[in-house]
């Protein structure tokens, strides 16, 4: 084991406890000192085990749905504009009721990770409904049937919030507004969020800007609203 001045810093480094300057100093030292590199490698086995020690909990399904929707959108974007991109490029402020069918619906279902739209494969109509929004913002809600399995909301033209804020979806039923997942948008103002709630009988899906972690009730007027 190493026994010089940096010896104790190796453990603190692996635990993320060094400040930036100390970290850089140690990394410079590691580049030259085989003994400390060996110490680092050996102790890494213990540090890497720490995250595996925690009680295991199941993440909520909405997290998976939201994440896969976002990755699906980004994956499609990386491959360039295709059929899906054109399908999703619905102009703002259109009236509800644009129906999809056949291959287009199947493609969307695959890209969106299967969440909420799987019934479309068994015959329910897959619907897209455009949002009304302020400024350059826009959005399209995609769901099957009456949204019993939830929906995917895809937004465009939303500015990236500053100060660590995020966007949050909401479902409105009369005077009751239910919080839904938070989400972020890319530099191009595009983003997606899964709304896992049963939307049958709901009046609208809305989006507000909230502090990270989300809110229990909207703290500002909706930036975007999809009337159901």
């Amino acid at each position: 084991m190493s026994d010089h001045a940096f010896r104790d810093d190796v453990a603190a480094y692996l635990l993320g406890a060094l400040d930036e300057r100390e970290r850089h100093d140690l990394e410079d030292h590691l580049a030259e000192c085989a003994e400390c590199r060996e110490e680092l490698q050996w102790l890494r086995g213990a540090a890497d085990a720490l995250p595996r020690s925690v009680e295991q909990h199941e993440p909520p399904p909405r997290l998976r749905a939201s994440l896969l929707a976002e990755v699906g959108v980004e994956g499609e974007r990386e491959r360039g504009p295709g059929l899906l991109e054109r399908l999703f490029s619905v102009p703002r402020r259109l009236t509800p009721g644009i129906a999809w069918s056949g291959a287009a619906a199947v493609l969307a279902i695959g890209l969106l990770g299967g969440y909420g739209l799987s019934q479309g494969l068994s015959g329910d109509e897959v619907r897209t409904i455009s949002a009304t929004a302020e400024g350059n913002a826009g959005g399209v809600l995609t769901m099957s049937g009456d949204g019993e399995d939830g929906a995917i909301l895809r937004v465009t033209g939303l500015a990236q919030p500053t100060g660590g804020d995020v966007y949050q979806a909401w479902v409105q039923r009369g005077r009751t507004i239910t919080p839904e997942p938070t989400f972020e948008v890319g530099q191009d103002g595009r983003g997606a969020v899964a709304v896992p709630e049963d939307l049958s009988g709901a009046d609208a899906v809305m989006v507000t800007r909230e502090e990270r972690g989300g809110a229990r009730a909207p703290t500002s007027a909706p930036l975007l609203r999809v009337g159901l």
């Binding site: 084991m1 010896r7 104790d8 453990a11 603190a12 406890a17 086995g45 213990a46 540090a47």
Partner: peptide, 12 residues
């Protein structure tokens, strides 16, 4: 820092 090192060594 010494306790961190001793702890990780023992854990390893």
């Amino acid at each position: 820092k010494g306790r961190m090192r001793l702890g990780l060594e023992k854990l390893r």
